[in-house]
Amino acid sequence: MNNALLTKYINKNKRTDTPEIRPGDTIRVYVKIKEGDKERLQAFEGTLIARKNSGMGESITVRKMSFGHGVERIFPLHARVVDRIDVIRTGRVRRAKLYYLRGLRGKAARLRERT
């Protein structure tokens, strides 16, 4: 994917309003939800555990604990259904994919703040 025209086209189409987010960060994703003819925003807050793919197909995996159960949602970064992303807290981690967090809970699943 190093074609100049392709890169130019992707840069033109991708959204530029996403904040700088990295695996380990705690983020809140606002998703547009359609109910009948009304539209509302729903927030999903959790730890960003993976960023996958590049270009228009880039997606993020967000994990949170909900009533004792781990819940993960995958969001396409450039999709229109994602209204905006807020960074709540940054995290210092040493790998790109934090799948090991799935086996940890409570205090063990904490991450140090990035400075």
Binding site: N3, L5, L6, Y9, I10, N13, G55, M56, G57, P76, H78, A79, R80, V81
Partner: peptide
């Protein structure tokens, strides 16, 4: 190939041709 999102939120797979 890449993909684009249309105004209604649909994603469309596209090919760029010079």
């Amino acid at each position: 190939m890449t993909q684009v999102f249309q105004a209604d939120g649909q994603v469309v797979p596209v090919t760029l041709l010079k």
